[in-house]
Structures are given as C-alpha cells and as structure tokens.
Write a protein that binds this DNA or RNA. Structure first.
Length: 923
RNA sequence: GCGUCUAUAGCUCAGUUGGUUAGAGCGCUACCUUGACAUGGUAGAGGUCCCCUGUUCGAGUCAGGGUAGACGCACCA
C-alpha cells in the first residue's frame, strides 16, 4: 500500500464496480426502507447543498441496506419548466433566433436534444459523490409514465371540481411572459418614491390628493377610496373626481381597508393592477381597466400618446404630464417591497388573465392532520410551525404556465370556448359525444413544474397502476430536504399523496440547514464565494478556480473583487481531498441548527482522518498479512487490551446507531472519529506493539492480538462505510480475507452492518486500561512539563500500591515500559526511603521519577505549586457545597456522595502534593 | 404585524431530563523525523457560556425581560 491515501486512484473504479454489479437495487427482502431523492433540475449542477443532502441520504441508505432492509433510493430529475426553457432559449439567442422562429414542436424537440446531451450532468456528479440510488429506476418528470400520472391527476381533480379555470389577477412575469405562483415571487425592500398627486373633484368644488408608488397605473384608476370615518373626506364620499389625463370621472368610495394615517388617507384604486385594489374593486363592483400588454407596455385602453410605452417610461411621462398641469404635489423617497420573479429578476406585474387553479383547501385539511397527528414528523420539530402557518392560510394554487416546455394541460376548447378535459381529443369527443366536424383546440399552457413534483412519491412507483412498489414503498421512510421547498414541494406532496393514495408520502421529514461559507454568508456567484463540491474532491488549480468564479457573472464589475478574494483565500488553489473526506465533513457539520457554515479546515482535517485510517490499515496488514491471525483455528488468548478495544467498539457502535436514528449525523461522525483516532490508533495500536514484538509473549497471545487487530479493523470499516464508502471498500477488499468475516461478498456494501454484542462489553478491561492510560499519561505529563527528552529512558519507582495496583502492574509491566519509554519500574516496599522525585498519582499509587540529573528543583516546585493551587480550589469549592445545609438536605443522595468522593480524592491528592513540596523544598 | 432560529475558546461548532473541574476539530506555543502515519506524535496555553432579573441546594441548560444577528409569512396605497 502507498504511504499516503490517494482517493482519486480508487474512487472511479470502485463506483463502477458497485453500479455495474447492481448493488444499488432494493434487495426485495427485509423491512422496506425508502428515500425519495428530491429530483434536481435537469439543468442543474451539483452544488454544496445537494452534496450535503445527498451525503445524508446516502449514509442512511447504505446503513439500512447493510442492516438488511429492503432499501430503495428512488432517484430522477425534474424537467424544470422555466429553467430548462431558458437554457435552450439562450442557445437560440446566440444563433439570433427565438423559440417562435422554430415553433412549439421544433422547440420542444430541441429541448429534448439538449436534455439527451447535457441533462445527465448532475447525475454524473452524484456518482462522484458515491451516492447509491437505484439508477435503473431513474425517472424524468416528463417520462411517459410520469406524464400519464400527471394527466390522470389533473383530470380527476377537474372532475371533482378541485381544478378550475378563471380570470383573476395573477403574478405575471413580463420577461418570461407567463404567470407564476405566489411562491415564485420574491419581495424585497428597495428604495423607491411616493408620488402625491391632485385629483380634482368633477364638480370643481375642490380636489383630493392621493399618494401612490406607481403613478403610471393612474390611467386605470376606477375609484378613489377613503376611510368611512375619516372626517376630512367623509362628506366627499359618493362624489366624483375627474381623473387627470384620461379625464374619466370616477367615484369616491369609502372602505375600511384604507388607513387614514398612511399617505394622504386617499387611495387611488386600480383594480386590474393591484391585488388589494382588485379585492376592493370586487367589493364595490368597480370596472377593471387593464392597461398593459403581456410585456408590460401600455395598451389601447390608455390615451393615444401613451400607447406602447414601456411601464417605467410610462411612469416618467405620467409624472411629467401631471407636473405640467400642476397636479404633482410632491415626490417623497419611500422604501417599498418590490416583487420580482425568482427566475427572471424583473418586477412582477399583477395582471388579469385566464389561468388554471387548484382549489387547495380541501386537500390541505388532511395534510395538516397528518402532521398534527404525528403520522408525519418534522426533524427538527419546530418546522411544523412553519408548515402549519402556511397551510392554514393557503391560497389556491395557480398551476398554468404560458411556457412550451412542460406537461401540456389536458384541456380542449370548442369554438364557443366550452372547455373539455380528458386524456386526448378522441377520448373527449367520445365522452361528450362531439361530432367530428366540431373543431377542438388544446389549451396552450403547460403545468407548473411543481405540479408533477407533487406526485413524486407515488408517480415514481408506477401509479396509477397498482404496482408492488406502490404497495411496498409508499409511504417512504424519510424525506431529506431543505426548508426552502417546504411549501413548494413538501406540503404539496403531502396533499397529493394523501388525496391519491390515501397514504402519507413519508414518515419523517429531515430538514437540513443551508450551506453557507465559513463567514456565514450565502454562497453566490456575485459574492464569488461558491465552492463546487467536485473541486473539493478533485482539487483545482488557482487559475482555473479564478476563471470559474469570474466567468459568466451577472455583474461583471464584481469580477476583480472576486478574483482578489479568491487569490487571497486559496493562494495555491484547492487541494484534492477526496470524496470520503468531503462526505465526512458534511456529516460532522450536520447538526440541527438552521445554517451550516462550511469550514474548509474541517475538510482538511477529515482528509487527514482518511490518511490515518489508511496508515492504521498499513500497520495492521504489516502485522497480519504474513502471520497467523487465528482464522484457521488455533488457541487465541485475548489480552486485556484486546478485550478493551472490543468493549469500546461496542460503545461506539451503539452510540452511532442511536445518533443515526436521531438524525444526529454530527454526533455519529464524532463518535466514529473519536474511536478510530483516539482509541484504536492512539492506544490500541500502540498497545499491540509490545505483544507483537515481544520475544516472550506466547504464540496464542500474539495470535489473539493479530486476530483482534484485523477483526476490529474489519468491523470498523463496516461501521464507517455509510459515511466513507470508498476508502472503506478499498481497505475492506484487502483485509476481509484475513478476518473472520465471510469473504465471498464482493463489496463491503453488501456486507452486514456490525451487530452489537453485550458479551463483548468488558467493564473490568475498561477499568484496567483506564489505569494503564493514567499511568502512562502521568509520566508523559512530567516529561512534557519538565522538558525531558522523549528519547530519554526513565527509571521509575512506585509506592503506596493497593492489591489491585499490584495485579495490574504485574500484567502490564511490559506495556508500561514500552509506552512510557521506561528502563525500569521498581516497587518501593513499605517504609523504604524514596529519593527526591517528581510525582504523578494513579489513584493513591504514586509514581516517582527521581530528579537526580534530570529535573530542576525549581521547575518541579513550580509544577507542584500549580497542582496545589488547583487542588486547593477544588477542595474549597467542594467543601463549600457540602457545608451548605440546603445542599445536603435537598440534593439527591447520589449527588452528595459524588461530592464527598470528590472531596476525599482532592484532599488525598492535595496532601500528597504538599508532602512532595516539603520534600523537594528540603533538598 | 405574525412566526421561527441563533449567540459557548482566536475560528467553525457540540454540550441529553438542571448535578464533578464546560468539550471537539482547526489555529496557536514548546518539544520530537521513535519501524503505520509530519496529512504524524507528546505536552501545553486559551472561556465573564451576549446582558439583566428570577426559579432552585445548584443554571451554559429552565422562566421573564433586554441586546445583537439570521430567516419565513403577510403587508400601507
């Protein structure tokens, strides 16, 4: 084996081995365990958030698979209507074409071509991460069977009256020329203005001043509203104002909605271009005048001079016109929430159009109950509040999109505008008995991408057919996803799955945090702080990293800054850390807090951890490969160290399984790390050396230790495998044949997860090893603090031994000599004079290191004084507690006993330190 | 406005039903190329647990009130 672990050499071959041998398939036996992959956009590439979530899912899936469950990780990609259409439209733009030049059919063909060619990017990247979904079952949301499910659901909901079509005010994206749902609109505070404008009364008796942030919409005003109790305006209600520019007369109405304190207390009402005005317009039966074309330019409903103007140009012109007429009172700076499309970034326009909606209220009810009853559980739990809050105020869902790419709405219209819904034209003709000469035209719209995603839990299992998968894997076990799509996706899956299968879609919802950079900033192209998980795996040269981060920026002026910061943070580029290190990092950062600040130094640390494992393996192989490990029989004598490491392994295994069932991947990772490095490598391997290298230890003892070395390592690999799939399989291939584990299995993936064994717990061995450790640490301590060279072998004396000390000493002397680098250990008999020494305590036993020629008197005094101070503080604090009557009378006896024992121990140690000080002082 | 979350070592984070001297990794200091590993070993330094008040024998942990920050939903034209 190489001296350092080199991940890139093994990963690709290893993955190909797993995939080509069908190891990701559900076994078909055992308890069903299923995870649904949140389908990434087919246009996507793997970002840190994916990498994190996929690590979590893969760890769970590998764990359950090894535990013997019938484990399915259902994967696939999402057709991502807008995103995908935009990608291909950009390509067309580069050829100086638009989608309209191609026409709908050719354009869709072109998207399919693109998908065939480039759509697999993210799934290839997932493979690099070592994920193990069943690729043979991979689906795409536009696959025929998925499309069939979509159509079926649409038709059924329509037939039940839960899908309807209506003319309503919707969020209109004037760049993408489509309606979008409420969730796709991001409102953020921006600097704007408030215009105060005079509206003269029609009878010439005065005027009203209205305040608005959108003066251009005044062309579509159909009323001015005031609060019914507003003394300033009460008397004007019912009168008319003459709307400037258009010279239309519109009424002054009274409505509670108006806040007299805000602005001037007079609100212009534009029902066709504002959601609140729309509602008010309906209350007061006001006319609705639509001012805009679909690109948000003024239409024929405005005076000729304004027709065709783009909305912001129109704003300028309206304000100028009012100003000229002396109707502009003032312009105030004003902060307001501006709604923008999450894809296009342009200001969203409330726009009156015909759209399709899902009436969600009746679907929401059982979905709320599923969480309230505990049938579905959010982890961490507090997310259910967010869920309830949204679900209780849920609005009908606008599902139609004016795009070409997506599931086309299965609705047809005759020439009278009558609507028919069905699977296809002929089915509809038959169902409704329509004569062949009646012309039918299919609706041009497609469905919101999230509509098909909402069916993921059952559509991927073959619904509407009654398949065995549907039976077995609905509900799935756990959904791993981010809080950002609880409304978009999670809630809608619960509603649809309840509705169409009667079942819940999943039992647990594990909500992961958002991956941020090490300063807690969101990773974004414009900040230039994006890390690509593949770069952490493979490494990347500085120049390549810089050009990657600065190319294709939305704001190219930031490129310089990004370049500078990148060069500063990564002067040598990013090293190759390998997949296992990256995965372990994600696991170790996966605590329950909302956000995760990704710290590069952690990846480096876990790369080192991989290397540690690799080298521990080299050591084990070196000592077992050519030797008798007891596999063919022969007597095995297990030393106290052997029994100890097995015992500690049980603790680690139990802790790991508990943490996994709590979704505490950070704690699970920590327990693996601690055992592997601090117990197995730091102590057990060191302790094994004296036995293996000794001329005096018996063959059965050597065999016992070799047996333990290879088998504990083999168990460790299986325990670590869910988090670190590559290195564990690579090592396991080498070591499993030497272990007692069945070696006919072709990958660790298919090996069973270690089973907890109470019989291997050995408290006596653990206590014995604690004694050995504190003996050795005591000596190392003195060495360290007294600056005694590590190479200097010491002679130590012991005194005040108990019977147990003597027994332990007798059985471990060789190890103590070796690990503490001692020449000799000599026990002083009772009353025997001890030379001036530095002292360490193991319980009540004293370890003496004679000072002669080694230790400076003052240094030792200083060390003792430091120890004395600390002990005195301990004694005082503990005494204080025990002297407090309230404590003694009210605290539980166990706590009091503990305090008493602590006091006794501290007093004993303090006495010894004081004695020692006197002795040294006397020199 | 309604709701959620966060504050612990220089940095990134753990800390269970309140109970020894508050932990880990990284970084830092000193020493060590010892036969698995310098991507290493040994030892060490480093904390007013954001602030205040309360409950309690006992509070990082519980309650109330602040301060600072992050986020979600609904929003006033």
């Amino acid at each position: 084996m190489e001296k350092t672990f080199n991940p890139s050499q093994i990963e690709k071959a290893c993955y190909a081995h797993w995939e080509s041998n069908g190891m990701f398939r559900a076994s078909g036996y055992g308890e069903p365990y299923c995870i649904l992959l949140p389908p990434p956009n087919v246009t996507g590439s793997l970002h840190m958030g994916h990498a994190f979530q996929h690590t979590v899912m893969d760890a769970l899936v590998r764990y359950r698979r090894m535990k013997g469950d019938n484990t399915l990780w259902q994967c696939g990609t999402d057709h991502a209507g807008i995103a995908t259409q935009m990608v291909v439209e950009r390509q067309l733009n580069a050829e100086d074409k638009t989608r309209h030049d191609l026409g709908r059919e050719k354009f869709i063909e072109r998207i399919w071509d693109w998908k065939e060619e480039s759509g697999g990017n993210i799934t290839q990247q997932m493979r690099r991460l070592g994920t193990s979904p069943d690729w043979e079952r991979e689906v795409f949301t536009m696959d025929p069977n998925l499309s069939k499910a979509v159509q079926e659901v649409f038709i059924q909901l329509f037939d039940e009256g839960l899908i309807y079509r209506g003319k309503r005010l919707v969020n209109w994206d004037p760049a993408l020329l489509t309606a979008v749902s409420d969730l796709e609109v991001i409102s953020e505070e921006e600097d704007g203005h408030m215009w105060h404008m005079r509206y003269p009364l029609a009878d010439g008796s005065g005027e009203l001043v209205v305040a608005t942030t959108r003066p251009e919409t005044m062309l579509g005003d159909t009323a001015v509203a005031v609060h019914p109790d507003d003394e300033r305006y009460k008397h004007l209600v019912g009168k008319m104002v003459k709307l400037p520019i258009t010279e239309r007369e519109i009424p002054i109405i009274a409505d509670d909605y108006v806040d007299p304190e805000f602005g001037t207390g007079c609100v212009k009402i534009t029902p066709a271009h504002d959601f609140n005005d729309y509602e008010m317009g309906k209350r007061h039966q006001l006319p609705m005048i639509n001012l805009f074309t679909d690109t948000a330019c003024l239409n024929e409903n405005v005076p000729e001079a304004y027709r065709g103007l783009e909305r912001f140009e129109a704003r300028k012109r309206v304000v100028e016109a009012l100003d000229t007429k002396g109707l502009l009172v003032q312009i105030k700076p004003h902060k307001l929430k501006v709604p923008r499309g999450d894809r296009s970034g342009v200001v969203i326009e409330p726009y009156l159009t015909d759209q399709w909606y899902v009436a969600v209220e009746s679907l929401a009810k059982p979905a709320i109950e599923a969480v309230e009853s505990g049938e579905i559980r959010f982890v961490p739990e507090n997310w259910n509040k967010t869920y309830y809050q949204w679900m209780h105020n849920i609005q009908d869902w606008c599902i139609s999109r004016q795009l070409w790419w997506g599931h086309r709405i299965p609705a047809w219209y005759d020439e009278n505008g009558e609507v028919y819904v069905g699977e296809n034209e002929s089915a509809i003709r038959e169902k409704h008995g329509l004569a062949p000469d009646i012309l039918l035209k299919q609706d041009n719209d497609v469905l919101d991408t999230w509509f098909s995603s909402a069916l993921w839990p059952f559509a991927t299992m073959g619904w509407p057919d009654k398949t065995p998968e549907l039976e077995t894997f609905v509900p799935s076990s756990v959904l791993v996803t981010g809080f950002d799509i609880i409304f978009f996706w999670v809630a809608r899956m619960i509603m649809m799955t309840k509705k169409f299968t009667g079942n819940i879609p999943f039992k647990d919802i594990y909500i992961t945090g958002l991956i941020r950079d090490e300063n807690g900033d969101k990773m974004s192209k414009s900040k230039g702080n994006v890390l690509d998980p593949i770069d952490l795996i493979d490494g990347i040269e500085l120049e390549a990293l810089v050009s990657k981060r600065t190319s294709g920026m939305m704001q190219p002026q930031l490129a310089k800054k990004v370049e500078k910061a990148t060069r500063k943070q990564f002067p040598d580029g990013i090293a190759s850390y390998g997949t296992d290190a990256l995965r372990f990092t994600f696991a170790s950062l996966a605590s329950t807090s909302r956000d995760i600040n990704f710290d590069m130094s952690r990846v480096e640390g876990y790369r080192n951890f991989c290397n540690k494992i690799w080298n521990a393996t080299r050591f084990v192989l070196m000592n077992t490969e050519e030797f008798d490990t007891g596999k063919q029989g022969g007597e095995l004598t297990l030393s106290v160290f052997d029994r100890w490491i097995w015992s500690r392994f049980q603790d680690t295994l139990n802790a790991f399984e508990q943490h996994i069932s709590d979704y505490r991947f950070d704690l699970a990772a920590q327990s693996l790390y601690e055992f592997t490095w601090n117990q197995f490598c730091d102590w057990y391997l060191e302790l094994s050396k004296p036995i293996l290298n000794s001329d005096t230890s018996s063959e059965s003892a050597k065999r016992g230790t070799r047996h333990t070395l290879i088998n504990v390592l083999e168990h460790m690999m299986r325990l670590l495998h869910p988090f670190m799939p590559y290195i564990t399989d690579e090592i396991w291939q080498k070591i499993a044949p030497l272990s007692t584990q069945k070696s006919d299995v072709i990958s660790i993936m298919l090996a069973p997860f270690p089973e907890s064994s109470e019989a291997l717990k050995d408290n006596q061995a653990e206590a014995d090893i604690e004694w050995v450790k504190s003996f050795i640490v005591g000596i190392r301590n003195i060495r360290g603090e007294m600056d005694i060279a590590p190479s200097k072998k010491l002679d130590v004396l012991l005194q005040n031994l108990s019977g147990a000390d003597e027994i332990r000493l007798a059985s471990t002397t060789d190890y103590l000599l070796s690990l503490a680098k001692l020449d000799s250990i000599q026990v002083l008999s009772k009353g025997e004079e001890a030379p001036a020494s530095a002292t360490a305590l193991v319980g009540e036993m004293e370890i003496l290191i004679p000072m002669a020629g080694l230790i400076d008197k003052d240094a030792e005094l200083a060390r003792l004084t430091k120890a004395e101070d600390k002990l005195e503080k301990d004694v005082l604090r503990t005494q204080g507690k025990l002297n407090n009557e309230n404590f003694v009378s009210k605290a539980p006896p166990a706590v009091i006993d503990k305090e008493k024992a602590k006091l006794a121990d501290a007093q004993m140690q303090l006495a010894k330190v004081k004695e020692q000080k006197i002795a040294i002082n006397a020199l």
